[in-house]
Design a protein around this nucleic acid. Structure first.
Lengths: 125, 125, 125, 125
DNA sequence: GTGGTCTAGACCACC
DNA sequence: GTGGTCTAGACCACG
Protein backbone atom coordinates (compact mmCIF):
# COMPACT_ATOMS: atom_id res chain seq x y z
CA UNK A 1 0.00 0.00 0.00
CA UNK A 2 2.22 2.79 -1.22
CA UNK A 3 1.31 5.22 1.51
CA UNK A 4 3.49 8.19 2.25
CA UNK A 5 2.23 9.90 5.34
CA UNK A 6 5.68 11.43 5.44
CA UNK A 7 4.67 13.30 8.54
CA UNK A 8 1.71 15.26 9.77
CA UNK A 9 4.08 17.84 11.22
CA UNK A 10 2.19 21.12 10.84
CA UNK A 11 2.58 22.72 7.45
CA UNK A 12 4.04 25.91 8.84
CA UNK A 13 6.82 23.97 10.55
CA UNK A 14 7.50 22.02 7.39
CA UNK A 15 7.93 25.35 5.62
CA UNK A 16 10.16 26.64 8.41
CA UNK A 17 12.36 23.59 7.87
CA UNK A 18 12.37 24.10 4.14
CA UNK A 19 13.51 27.72 4.48
CA UNK A 20 16.07 26.81 7.13
CA UNK A 21 17.53 24.19 4.83
CA UNK A 22 17.89 26.71 2.04
CA UNK A 23 19.69 29.10 4.34
CA UNK A 24 22.17 26.66 5.77
CA UNK A 25 22.80 25.22 2.31
CA UNK A 26 23.67 28.69 1.12
CA UNK A 27 20.90 28.80 -1.49
CA UNK A 28 19.73 31.82 0.46
CA UNK A 29 22.65 33.97 1.60
CA UNK A 30 22.88 36.53 4.43
CA UNK A 31 20.92 39.60 3.49
CA UNK A 32 18.94 37.89 0.71
CA UNK A 33 15.32 38.86 0.42
CA UNK A 34 12.79 36.10 0.99
CA UNK A 35 9.80 35.85 -1.34
CA UNK A 36 6.87 38.03 -0.37
CA UNK A 37 4.28 36.43 1.87
CA UNK A 38 1.78 36.54 -0.95
CA UNK A 39 4.13 35.00 -3.55
CA UNK A 40 5.24 32.25 -1.27
CA UNK A 41 1.64 31.53 -0.33
CA UNK A 42 0.76 31.04 -3.98
CA UNK A 43 3.89 28.99 -4.68
CA UNK A 44 3.20 26.72 -1.71
CA UNK A 45 -0.53 26.51 -2.33
CA UNK A 46 -1.10 27.66 1.20
CA UNK A 47 -2.94 30.43 3.01
CA UNK A 48 -0.93 33.69 3.42
CA UNK A 49 -1.56 33.54 7.16
CA UNK A 50 0.43 30.32 7.26
CA UNK A 51 3.40 32.01 5.56
CA UNK A 52 3.08 34.92 7.98
CA UNK A 53 3.55 32.42 10.75
CA UNK A 54 6.55 30.85 9.02
CA UNK A 55 8.32 34.20 8.75
CA UNK A 56 7.49 35.05 12.35
CA UNK A 57 9.06 31.78 13.44
CA UNK A 58 12.18 32.38 11.34
CA UNK A 59 12.53 35.78 13.00
CA UNK A 60 12.09 34.25 16.44
CA UNK A 61 14.96 31.90 15.56
CA UNK A 62 17.06 34.98 14.77
CA UNK A 63 17.77 33.81 11.26
CA UNK A 64 15.46 36.23 9.46
CA UNK A 65 14.60 39.89 9.91
CA UNK A 66 11.33 41.52 9.01
CA UNK A 67 11.68 45.08 7.73
CA UNK A 68 8.28 46.73 7.64
CA UNK A 69 7.34 47.84 4.19
CA UNK A 70 10.36 46.16 2.57
CA UNK A 71 10.00 42.45 3.19
CA UNK A 72 11.73 39.66 5.05
CA UNK A 73 15.47 39.07 4.79
CA UNK A 74 17.99 36.43 5.77
CA UNK A 75 19.94 37.60 8.81
CA UNK A 76 23.27 39.33 8.20
CA UNK A 77 24.69 37.46 11.17
CA UNK A 78 26.58 34.66 9.49
CA UNK A 79 27.49 33.24 12.88
CA UNK A 80 23.81 32.58 13.56
CA UNK A 81 23.48 30.56 10.37
CA UNK A 82 26.53 28.46 11.14
CA UNK A 83 25.19 27.87 14.61
CA UNK A 84 21.84 26.74 13.19
CA UNK A 85 23.64 24.50 10.75
CA UNK A 86 25.46 22.75 13.56
CA UNK A 87 22.32 22.44 15.64
CA UNK A 88 20.33 20.89 12.82
CA UNK A 89 23.15 18.53 11.94
CA UNK A 90 23.56 17.23 15.46
CA UNK A 91 19.79 17.03 15.98
CA UNK A 92 19.39 14.87 12.88
CA UNK A 93 22.35 12.71 13.78
CA UNK A 94 21.17 12.22 17.32
CA UNK A 95 17.71 10.98 16.38
CA UNK A 96 19.20 8.79 13.64
CA UNK A 97 21.73 7.23 16.02
CA UNK A 98 19.06 6.60 18.63
CA UNK A 99 17.00 4.65 16.13
CA UNK A 100 19.97 2.68 14.81
CA UNK A 101 21.03 1.89 18.34
CA UNK A 102 17.53 0.72 19.21
CA UNK A 103 17.70 -1.65 16.27
CA UNK A 104 20.99 -3.02 17.52
CA UNK A 105 23.35 -1.81 14.80
CA UNK A 106 27.01 -1.30 15.58
CA UNK A 107 28.98 1.85 14.81
CA UNK A 108 30.94 0.02 12.12
CA UNK A 109 27.80 -1.27 10.42
CA UNK A 110 26.38 2.21 10.38
CA UNK A 111 29.46 3.91 9.00
CA UNK A 112 30.01 1.23 6.38
CA UNK A 113 26.36 1.46 5.36
CA UNK A 114 26.63 5.22 5.06
CA UNK A 115 29.72 5.08 2.88
CA UNK A 116 27.99 2.48 0.72
CA UNK A 117 24.91 4.65 0.37
CA UNK A 118 27.05 7.70 -0.38
CA UNK A 119 28.88 5.90 -3.18
CA UNK A 120 25.59 4.67 -4.61
CA UNK A 121 24.17 8.19 -4.61
CA UNK A 122 27.27 9.55 -6.31
CA UNK A 123 27.02 6.83 -8.92
CA UNK A 124 23.52 8.00 -9.84
CA UNK A 125 24.66 11.51 -10.78
CA UNK B 1 -7.12 19.58 21.27
CA UNK B 2 -3.58 18.84 22.39
CA UNK B 3 -2.44 17.02 19.29
CA UNK B 4 1.00 15.52 19.44
CA UNK B 5 1.78 15.03 15.78
CA UNK B 6 4.37 12.55 16.94
CA UNK B 7 3.77 10.70 13.73
CA UNK B 8 0.75 9.96 11.60
CA UNK B 9 2.25 6.73 10.34
CA UNK B 10 -0.58 4.24 10.70
CA UNK B 11 -0.64 2.46 14.04
CA UNK B 12 -0.55 -0.94 12.39
CA UNK B 13 2.66 -0.04 10.55
CA UNK B 14 4.19 1.37 13.71
CA UNK B 15 3.47 -1.96 15.35
CA UNK B 16 4.88 -3.86 12.38
CA UNK B 17 8.06 -1.82 12.81
CA UNK B 18 8.12 -2.43 16.53
CA UNK B 19 7.83 -6.19 16.11
CA UNK B 20 10.36 -6.19 13.27
CA UNK B 21 12.82 -4.33 15.49
CA UNK B 22 12.41 -6.88 18.25
CA UNK B 23 13.06 -9.70 15.83
CA UNK B 24 16.16 -8.25 14.23
CA UNK B 25 17.50 -7.26 17.65
CA UNK B 26 17.10 -10.85 18.76
CA UNK B 27 14.65 -9.98 21.55
CA UNK B 28 12.32 -12.31 19.67
CA UNK B 29 14.15 -15.36 18.37
CA UNK B 30 13.24 -17.76 15.54
CA UNK B 31 10.35 -19.96 16.60
CA UNK B 32 9.30 -17.71 19.47
CA UNK B 33 5.57 -17.30 19.94
CA UNK B 34 4.21 -13.80 19.55
CA UNK B 35 1.55 -12.59 22.00
CA UNK B 36 -1.96 -13.61 21.03
CA UNK B 37 -3.88 -11.09 18.96
CA UNK B 38 -6.13 -10.29 21.89
CA UNK B 39 -3.32 -9.98 24.43
CA UNK B 40 -1.30 -7.70 22.25
CA UNK B 41 -4.40 -5.65 21.53
CA UNK B 42 -4.87 -5.08 25.25
CA UNK B 43 -1.16 -4.39 25.82
CA UNK B 44 -1.05 -1.89 22.97
CA UNK B 45 -4.37 -0.31 23.86
CA UNK B 46 -5.58 -1.03 20.36
CA UNK B 47 -8.38 -2.93 18.66
CA UNK B 48 -7.76 -6.65 17.99
CA UNK B 49 -8.44 -6.07 14.31
CA UNK B 50 -5.48 -3.73 14.16
CA UNK B 51 -3.19 -6.40 15.63
CA UNK B 52 -4.66 -8.92 13.22
CA UNK B 53 -3.54 -6.65 10.43
CA UNK B 54 -0.09 -6.38 11.98
CA UNK B 55 0.32 -10.15 12.12
CA UNK B 56 -1.00 -10.56 8.59
CA UNK B 57 1.60 -8.07 7.40
CA UNK B 58 4.40 -9.84 9.30
CA UNK B 59 3.35 -13.08 7.64
CA UNK B 60 3.29 -11.42 4.23
CA UNK B 61 6.85 -10.27 4.92
CA UNK B 62 7.73 -13.93 5.58
CA UNK B 63 9.08 -13.14 9.04
CA UNK B 64 6.19 -14.68 10.97
CA UNK B 65 4.20 -17.87 10.54
CA UNK B 66 0.62 -18.38 11.59
CA UNK B 67 -0.38 -21.76 12.95
CA UNK B 68 -4.15 -21.87 13.13
CA UNK B 69 -5.42 -22.50 16.59
CA UNK B 70 -1.93 -22.24 18.07
CA UNK B 71 -0.78 -18.70 17.53
CA UNK B 72 1.71 -16.66 15.53
CA UNK B 73 5.42 -17.44 15.61
CA UNK B 74 8.68 -15.84 14.50
CA UNK B 75 9.87 -17.57 11.34
CA UNK B 76 12.38 -20.38 11.77
CA UNK B 77 14.19 -19.09 8.69
CA UNK B 78 17.07 -17.16 10.24
CA UNK B 79 18.18 -16.07 6.78
CA UNK B 80 14.94 -14.12 6.35
CA UNK B 81 15.60 -12.20 9.56
CA UNK B 82 19.15 -11.29 8.54
CA UNK B 83 17.81 -10.16 5.18
CA UNK B 84 15.24 -7.96 6.91
CA UNK B 85 17.92 -6.54 9.18
CA UNK B 86 19.97 -5.44 6.18
CA UNK B 87 16.93 -3.99 4.45
CA UNK B 88 15.88 -1.97 7.47
CA UNK B 89 19.44 -0.74 8.02
CA UNK B 90 19.86 0.47 4.48
CA UNK B 91 16.35 1.96 4.43
CA UNK B 92 17.07 4.02 7.55
CA UNK B 93 20.47 5.09 6.26
CA UNK B 94 19.07 6.05 2.89
CA UNK B 95 16.41 8.37 4.27
CA UNK B 96 18.91 9.86 6.72
CA UNK B 97 21.48 10.49 4.00
CA UNK B 98 18.87 12.05 1.73
CA UNK B 99 17.98 14.57 4.41
CA UNK B 100 21.60 15.33 5.26
CA UNK B 101 22.39 15.74 1.60
CA UNK B 102 19.45 18.12 1.16
CA UNK B 103 20.87 20.20 3.98
CA UNK B 104 24.23 20.31 2.29
CA UNK B 105 26.36 18.32 4.72
CA UNK B 106 29.48 16.58 3.48
CA UNK B 107 30.27 12.91 4.07
CA UNK B 108 33.09 13.87 6.48
CA UNK B 109 30.86 16.16 8.51
CA UNK B 110 28.29 13.42 8.82
CA UNK B 111 30.74 10.70 9.84
CA UNK B 112 32.51 12.94 12.31
CA UNK B 113 29.19 13.99 13.79
CA UNK B 114 28.17 10.37 14.15
CA UNK B 115 31.38 9.37 15.90
CA UNK B 116 30.99 12.33 18.22
CA UNK B 117 27.41 11.37 19.00
CA UNK B 118 28.42 7.76 19.53
CA UNK B 119 31.12 8.70 22.05
CA UNK B 120 28.70 10.94 23.89
CA UNK B 121 26.15 8.13 24.11
CA UNK B 122 28.77 5.73 25.40
CA UNK B 123 29.83 8.27 28.01
CA UNK B 124 26.30 8.35 29.40
CA UNK B 125 26.24 4.62 30.21
CA UNK C 1 -29.76 -13.11 8.58
CA UNK C 2 -29.91 -14.76 5.15
CA UNK C 3 -26.24 -15.42 4.72
CA UNK C 4 -25.17 -17.49 1.73
CA UNK C 5 -21.57 -18.54 2.28
CA UNK C 6 -22.10 -20.91 -0.63
CA UNK C 7 -18.44 -21.72 -0.76
CA UNK C 8 -16.38 -21.17 2.34
CA UNK C 9 -13.71 -19.32 0.39
CA UNK C 10 -13.69 -15.82 1.90
CA UNK C 11 -15.80 -13.30 0.07
CA UNK C 12 -12.89 -10.91 -0.36
CA UNK C 13 -10.88 -13.62 -2.15
CA UNK C 14 -13.85 -14.52 -4.33
CA UNK C 15 -14.01 -10.89 -5.34
CA UNK C 16 -10.26 -10.76 -5.94
CA UNK C 17 -10.69 -13.72 -8.28
CA UNK C 18 -13.63 -12.11 -10.01
CA UNK C 19 -11.70 -8.93 -10.68
CA UNK C 20 -8.60 -10.86 -11.73
CA UNK C 21 -10.66 -12.81 -14.24
CA UNK C 22 -12.05 -9.63 -15.73
CA UNK C 23 -8.56 -8.25 -16.13
CA UNK C 24 -7.01 -11.29 -17.76
CA UNK C 25 -10.02 -11.66 -20.04
CA UNK C 26 -9.53 -8.09 -21.16
CA UNK C 27 -12.94 -6.95 -19.93
CA UNK C 28 -10.93 -4.55 -17.82
CA UNK C 29 -8.00 -3.12 -19.75
CA UNK C 30 -4.75 -1.57 -18.50
CA UNK C 31 -5.48 1.87 -17.08
CA UNK C 32 -9.21 1.26 -16.68
CA UNK C 33 -10.77 2.65 -13.52
CA UNK C 34 -12.28 0.14 -11.15
CA UNK C 35 -15.60 0.98 -9.48
CA UNK C 36 -15.22 3.08 -6.33
CA UNK C 37 -15.00 1.14 -3.10
CA UNK C 38 -18.44 2.30 -2.08
CA UNK C 39 -20.07 1.59 -5.44
CA UNK C 40 -18.67 -1.88 -5.65
CA UNK C 41 -19.72 -2.50 -2.07
CA UNK C 42 -23.30 -1.66 -2.98
CA UNK C 43 -23.18 -3.67 -6.21
CA UNK C 44 -21.76 -6.70 -4.43
CA UNK C 45 -24.05 -6.34 -1.42
CA UNK C 46 -21.01 -6.28 0.79
CA UNK C 47 -19.42 -3.97 3.35
CA UNK C 48 -17.08 -1.28 1.97
CA UNK C 49 -14.30 -2.59 4.22
CA UNK C 50 -14.44 -5.88 2.39
CA UNK C 51 -13.99 -4.15 -0.96
CA UNK C 52 -11.17 -2.09 0.53
CA UNK C 53 -9.46 -5.35 1.33
CA UNK C 54 -10.05 -6.60 -2.20
CA UNK C 55 -8.45 -3.51 -3.71
CA UNK C 56 -5.53 -3.66 -1.26
CA UNK C 57 -4.93 -7.25 -2.33
CA UNK C 58 -5.10 -6.38 -6.03
CA UNK C 59 -2.54 -3.66 -5.38
CA UNK C 60 -0.33 -6.08 -3.47
CA UNK C 61 -0.50 -8.38 -6.49
CA UNK C 62 0.74 -5.44 -8.59
CA UNK C 63 -2.24 -5.65 -10.92
CA UNK C 64 -3.98 -2.52 -9.65
CA UNK C 65 -2.74 0.92 -8.71
CA UNK C 66 -4.34 3.22 -6.19
CA UNK C 67 -4.31 6.93 -6.89
CA UNK C 68 -5.37 8.72 -3.74
CA UNK C 69 -8.44 10.82 -4.21
CA UNK C 70 -8.94 9.53 -7.75
CA UNK C 71 -9.68 5.87 -7.48
CA UNK C 72 -8.22 2.46 -8.21
CA UNK C 73 -6.99 1.54 -11.68
CA UNK C 74 -5.89 -1.54 -13.58
CA UNK C 75 -2.09 -1.51 -13.82
CA UNK C 76 -0.57 -0.08 -16.97
CA UNK C 77 2.01 -2.88 -16.87
CA UNK C 78 0.59 -5.30 -19.44
CA UNK C 79 3.39 -7.74 -18.62
CA UNK C 80 2.02 -8.16 -15.11
CA UNK C 81 -1.38 -9.10 -16.46
CA UNK C 82 0.05 -11.69 -18.82
CA UNK C 83 2.03 -13.12 -15.95
CA UNK C 84 -1.12 -13.35 -13.83
CA UNK C 85 -2.95 -15.01 -16.70
CA UNK C 86 -0.32 -17.74 -16.87
CA UNK C 87 -0.38 -18.23 -13.11
CA UNK C 88 -4.14 -18.56 -12.96
CA UNK C 89 -4.15 -20.93 -15.92
CA UNK C 90 -1.62 -23.25 -14.37
CA UNK C 91 -3.30 -23.06 -10.96
CA UNK C 92 -6.64 -24.15 -12.43
CA UNK C 93 -5.02 -26.89 -14.47
CA UNK C 94 -3.09 -28.19 -11.51
CA UNK C 95 -6.12 -28.63 -9.28
CA UNK C 96 -8.07 -30.19 -12.18
CA UNK C 97 -5.29 -32.64 -12.95
CA UNK C 98 -4.95 -33.62 -9.32
CA UNK C 99 -8.62 -34.54 -9.17
CA UNK C 100 -8.52 -36.43 -12.46
CA UNK C 101 -5.44 -38.27 -11.33
CA UNK C 102 -7.13 -39.21 -8.05
CA UNK C 103 -9.96 -40.69 -10.08
CA UNK C 104 -7.49 -42.71 -12.12
CA UNK C 105 -7.88 -41.12 -15.53
CA UNK C 106 -5.03 -41.27 -18.05
CA UNK C 107 -3.60 -38.29 -19.89
CA UNK C 108 -5.09 -39.52 -23.17
CA UNK C 109 -8.54 -39.96 -21.70
CA UNK C 110 -8.41 -36.45 -20.30
CA UNK C 111 -7.24 -34.81 -23.49
CA UNK C 112 -9.71 -36.72 -25.64
CA UNK C 113 -12.50 -35.82 -23.25
CA UNK C 114 -11.51 -32.17 -23.41
CA UNK C 115 -11.47 -32.09 -27.20
CA UNK C 116 -14.87 -33.79 -27.25
CA UNK C 117 -16.26 -31.25 -24.79
CA UNK C 118 -14.75 -28.41 -26.79
CA UNK C 119 -16.37 -29.57 -30.02
CA UNK C 120 -19.72 -29.97 -28.28
CA UNK C 121 -19.50 -26.44 -26.92
CA UNK C 122 -18.63 -25.08 -30.35
CA UNK C 123 -21.55 -26.95 -31.84
CA UNK C 124 -23.92 -25.10 -29.50
CA UNK C 125 -22.99 -21.67 -30.84
CA UNK D 1 -18.67 -32.10 17.51
CA UNK D 2 -15.80 -32.31 15.02
CA UNK D 3 -17.62 -30.89 12.05
CA UNK D 4 -15.67 -30.12 8.92
CA UNK D 5 -18.00 -28.30 6.57
CA UNK D 6 -15.00 -27.81 4.29
CA UNK D 7 -17.32 -27.41 1.39
CA UNK D 8 -20.97 -26.86 2.07
CA UNK D 9 -21.85 -29.82 -0.20
CA UNK D 10 -23.82 -32.17 2.03
CA UNK D 11 -21.65 -34.69 3.81
CA UNK D 12 -23.58 -37.66 2.45
CA UNK D 13 -22.90 -36.51 -1.12
CA UNK D 14 -19.23 -36.02 -0.32
CA UNK D 15 -19.15 -39.61 0.85
CA UNK D 16 -21.02 -40.78 -2.25
CA UNK D 17 -18.31 -39.13 -4.33
CA UNK D 18 -15.58 -40.68 -2.26
CA UNK D 19 -16.99 -44.17 -2.71
CA UNK D 20 -17.63 -43.60 -6.41
CA UNK D 21 -14.03 -42.57 -6.88
CA UNK D 22 -12.81 -45.75 -5.23
CA UNK D 23 -14.97 -47.85 -7.49
CA UNK D 24 -14.01 -46.25 -10.75
CA UNK D 25 -10.35 -46.28 -9.74
CA UNK D 26 -10.63 -50.00 -9.16
CA UNK D 27 -9.73 -49.77 -5.47
CA UNK D 28 -13.12 -51.37 -4.97
CA UNK D 29 -13.82 -54.06 -7.59
CA UNK D 30 -17.12 -55.55 -8.78
CA UNK D 31 -18.53 -57.77 -6.07
CA UNK D 32 -16.35 -56.30 -3.30
CA UNK D 33 -18.04 -55.83 0.06
CA UNK D 34 -18.30 -52.27 1.30
CA UNK D 35 -17.57 -51.55 4.99
CA UNK D 36 -20.53 -52.06 7.30
CA UNK D 37 -22.66 -49.00 7.93
CA UNK D 38 -21.51 -48.95 11.51
CA UNK D 39 -17.79 -49.26 10.68
CA UNK D 40 -17.91 -46.63 8.03
CA UNK D 41 -19.84 -44.33 10.35
CA UNK D 42 -17.08 -44.64 12.93
CA UNK D 43 -14.31 -44.25 10.33
CA UNK D 44 -15.93 -41.14 8.91
CA UNK D 45 -16.89 -39.70 12.30
CA UNK D 46 -20.45 -39.47 11.09
CA UNK D 47 -23.87 -40.64 12.14
CA UNK D 48 -24.82 -44.18 10.87
CA UNK D 49 -27.98 -42.71 9.36
CA UNK D 50 -25.81 -40.63 7.08
CA UNK D 51 -23.98 -43.72 5.85
CA UNK D 52 -27.34 -45.44 5.36
CA UNK D 53 -28.23 -42.61 3.03
CA UNK D 54 -24.92 -42.93 1.20
CA UNK D 55 -25.46 -46.61 0.51
CA UNK D 56 -29.04 -45.98 -0.56
CA UNK D 57 -27.80 -43.42 -3.03
CA UNK D 58 -25.12 -45.77 -4.38
CA UNK D 59 -27.82 -48.39 -4.88
CA UNK D 60 -30.06 -45.88 -6.64
CA UNK D 61 -27.14 -45.19 -8.99
CA UNK D 62 -27.04 -48.94 -9.71
CA UNK D 63 -23.43 -49.23 -8.67
CA UNK D 64 -24.01 -50.95 -5.34
CA UNK D 65 -26.36 -53.71 -4.19
CA UNK D 66 -27.71 -54.12 -0.69
CA UNK D 67 -28.13 -57.76 0.37
CA UNK D 68 -30.22 -57.94 3.51
CA UNK D 69 -28.36 -59.55 6.35
CA UNK D 70 -25.08 -59.69 4.38
CA UNK D 71 -24.05 -56.13 3.68
CA UNK D 72 -23.56 -53.81 0.73
CA UNK D 73 -21.56 -54.80 -2.35
CA UNK D 74 -20.14 -53.17 -5.43
CA UNK D 75 -22.29 -54.07 -8.44
CA UNK D 76 -21.24 -57.05 -10.54
CA UNK D 77 -22.27 -55.13 -13.61
CA UNK D 78 -18.93 -53.89 -14.87
CA UNK D 79 -20.69 -51.99 -17.61
CA UNK D 80 -22.38 -49.78 -15.01
CA UNK D 81 -19.02 -48.85 -13.48
CA UNK D 82 -17.52 -47.94 -16.82
CA UNK D 83 -20.57 -45.85 -17.56
CA UNK D 84 -20.19 -44.02 -14.23
CA UNK D 85 -16.53 -43.52 -14.92
CA UNK D 86 -17.37 -41.82 -18.21
CA UNK D 87 -20.04 -39.69 -16.62
CA UNK D 88 -17.79 -38.46 -13.85
CA UNK D 89 -14.98 -37.78 -16.29
CA UNK D 90 -17.15 -35.72 -18.58
CA UNK D 91 -18.79 -33.91 -15.65
CA UNK D 92 -15.39 -32.84 -14.30
CA UNK D 93 -14.15 -31.88 -17.72
CA UNK D 94 -17.24 -29.90 -18.50
CA UNK D 95 -17.03 -27.74 -15.38
CA UNK D 96 -13.29 -27.28 -15.89
CA UNK D 97 -13.72 -26.24 -19.51
CA UNK D 98 -16.48 -23.83 -18.59
CA UNK D 99 -14.19 -22.09 -16.14
CA UNK D 100 -11.26 -22.00 -18.53
CA UNK D 101 -13.50 -20.67 -21.26
CA UNK D 102 -14.82 -17.97 -18.94
CA UNK D 103 -11.24 -16.92 -18.31
CA UNK D 104 -10.64 -16.71 -22.03
CA UNK D 105 -8.17 -19.56 -22.57
CA UNK D 106 -7.91 -21.27 -25.94
CA UNK D 107 -8.05 -25.03 -26.48
CA UNK D 108 -4.37 -25.10 -27.37
CA UNK D 109 -3.35 -23.22 -24.26
CA UNK D 110 -5.32 -25.62 -22.12
CA UNK D 111 -3.96 -28.77 -23.71
CA UNK D 112 -0.38 -27.50 -23.64
CA UNK D 113 -0.79 -26.49 -20.00
CA UNK D 114 -2.14 -29.93 -19.15
CA UNK D 115 0.72 -31.74 -20.83
CA UNK D 116 3.16 -29.46 -19.02
CA UNK D 117 1.49 -30.16 -15.69
CA UNK D 118 1.44 -33.88 -16.41
CA UNK D 119 5.17 -33.95 -17.12
CA UNK D 120 5.87 -31.95 -13.98
CA UNK D 121 3.84 -34.37 -11.88
CA UNK D 122 5.63 -37.35 -13.41
CA UNK D 123 8.95 -35.70 -12.64
CA UNK D 124 8.06 -35.53 -8.95
CA UNK D 125 7.59 -39.31 -8.59
C1' DG E 1 -8.12 -21.03 23.44
C1' DT E 2 -5.98 -19.56 18.55
C1' DG E 3 -6.36 -16.56 14.24
C1' DG E 4 -9.71 -15.17 10.14
C1' DT E 5 -13.61 -12.88 8.25
C1' DC E 6 -17.22 -9.58 8.06
C1' DT E 7 -20.25 -5.69 9.37
C1' DA E 8 -21.40 -1.07 10.87
C1' DG E 9 -20.05 3.19 11.26
C1' DA E 10 -16.59 6.74 12.30
C1' DC E 11 -12.91 9.95 11.03
C1' DC E 12 -8.91 11.22 8.19
C1' DA E 13 -5.94 12.69 4.05
C1' DC E 14 -5.91 13.70 -0.58
C1' DC E 15 -7.58 15.98 -4.99
C1' DG F 1 -15.71 12.78 -4.37
C1' DT F 2 -11.53 9.12 -3.71
C1' DG F 3 -9.19 5.48 -0.76
C1' DG F 4 -7.03 4.50 4.18
C1' DT F 5 -7.33 3.64 9.01
C1' DC F 6 -9.46 2.33 13.22
C1' DT F 7 -13.01 0.75 16.53
C1' DA F 8 -16.59 -2.23 18.36
C1' DG F 9 -18.48 -6.32 18.28
C1' DA F 10 -20.07 -10.52 15.94
C1' DC F 11 -19.44 -15.21 14.19
C1' DC F 12 -16.54 -18.81 12.16
C1' DA F 13 -12.89 -22.65 11.60
C1' DC F 14 -9.31 -25.00 13.67
C1' DG F 15 -7.03 -27.69 17.50
Amino acid sequence: MGNDYESSRPIYLQLVDKMSFRMIRGDLKPGDKLPSVRDMAVDSGVNPNTIQRVYAELERMDIAEVKRGQGTFVTQDEEKLLQLREELKQRQIQSFMKEMNDMGFTLDEIINGIKLEFDNEKGRD
